[in-house]
Design a protein around this nucleic acid. Sequence first.
DNA 1: GATTAGTTACTGTGATCACGATTAGGGACT
DNA 2: AGTCCCTAATCGTGATCACAGTAACTAATC
Lengths: 245, 245
Amino acid sequence: MNKLGDLAGEAPSSEHPKRSRSVVQDQVLANLKDALMSGVFLPGHVFSLRKLASSLGTSAMPVRESLNRLVAAHALEELPNGSVRVPKLSAKGLKEIFEIRLSIEAIATRIACETVGPSIVRDLREINDALLKSLKAMNMTEVLRLNQKFHFTIYEAADSEVLMPIIESLWLRCGPTMYYSFNSPNNLWDNSGHRLLQDAFKKKDPEAAQSAMVLDIGKTRDFLINQASIEQKAGPFASLGKVAV
Amino acid sequence: MNKLGDLAGEAPSSEHPKRSRSVVQDQVLANLKDALMSGVFLPGHVFSLRKLASSLGTSAMPVRESLNRLVAAHALEELPNGSVRVPKLSAKGLKEIFEIRLSIEAIATRIACETVGPSIVRDLREINDALLKSLKAMNMTEVLRLNQKFHFTIYEAADSEVLMPIIESLWLRCGPTMYYSFNSPNNLWDNSGHRLLQDAFKKKDPEAAQSAMVLDIGKTRDFLINQASIEQKAGPFASLGKVAV
DNA sequence: GATTAGTTACTGTGATCACGATTAGGGACT
DNA sequence: AGTCCCTAATCGTGATCACAGTAACTAATC
């Protein structure tokens, strides 16, 4: 499973590629973030600095700094020997994260609904239409990607440099687990939250938008908690072996 | 301004110092965090990798990783040329941070009051007594340190790996500005919030504790916002530079 | 055949260097 | 005296290396 993304696929032994500024580290970081959100790495996966570097076609330095940033954002956790891995969320930790997500994303939703223009209504509808189509095709990877896009379209509208990093960190933390759980068979996605959200933004009703977001996240949380208790043996919450990179 | 702390002051050219594991980076990071919270660096201060390294008696590597982590936590911000500096908070940014602090720390306070044992009452009283003493002596550095200890005693009691990193990040972001503002002459510290908090924990009343915390943070916010408008010319709120991503 | 000891490969860490870009400073010319 | 250009110092970045600790694997011994 080489090459996480389409990062400059040249051989490491080639001559100096034209790099203007620190694009390398940014690309590596973006790649890793995307991979985490998309469920490329399972919870518990341990990263190897040199292997990751060579698989990305770069040296260890940019990977070191990227992993360091993800550790600082608690998207990855540090092992006693200094290695980093994708955290295995306990049921308690998962519940905590969603508790905070409820509060923070509710605030962001209210602010967004208070300040944003009407163009967001169309954006949200388009995203949700695509989501429903992917849901019908049972393409859960795409469903999760579009769900993320739906939520972040709202949060970006809040235009807060304080809220956004917190929300991103929370999503990075529960992303791997979410991906894992929503790939299970008995998965029925409830779209009522998204509908209520669109209605609230159409009517520019911040209170309604806020409670709709609380409802939407609450449903996701309940599903995940339920899955956690089902998959307690083989799921990402138990001891699962490492996955080759 | 050499030597932030008492970090291994040996000459870099000496023989191998006995280092068991990655204590160096941890010490550097702890030093920088402490310095930020204590107001050693003013908002706008630009860091130089090599100078910081030599002033700390180490090489560039541990400093690089520490600064990187602080950037990831938004405690420092990245300039277009890759240098990092202490952010100059705009009045809007400061207001946002305190808005989130109100929500997050209120939750942490409620959880703490619900779960923690009675020993916290004594701890809080001791800290607040020392705070009042330092206040009488007009030792504002000590007051700020004890205020931080008071708050974090509560937050640590909530025992959450989700809330604590968020709270720490928020304090790191507004720390330099707080230190700067509270060193001003016309500063009267209102201790009523701390008193109400202690009462609430004594009676184990989570709701009262939560609203007392909201009150306490709100008072600090109002004072800071007021200071911001006073010092609009020369203070840390002056012409806010671009905010790099 | 099971256990233990020894060796080998691999881990992150810290230090150092080359590179390109940016910046500040000084000198010369108008 | 003011302005402009050139140079030198400094910046972060990416690559590479030595080191110490650890984990795993192999081989020898009981």
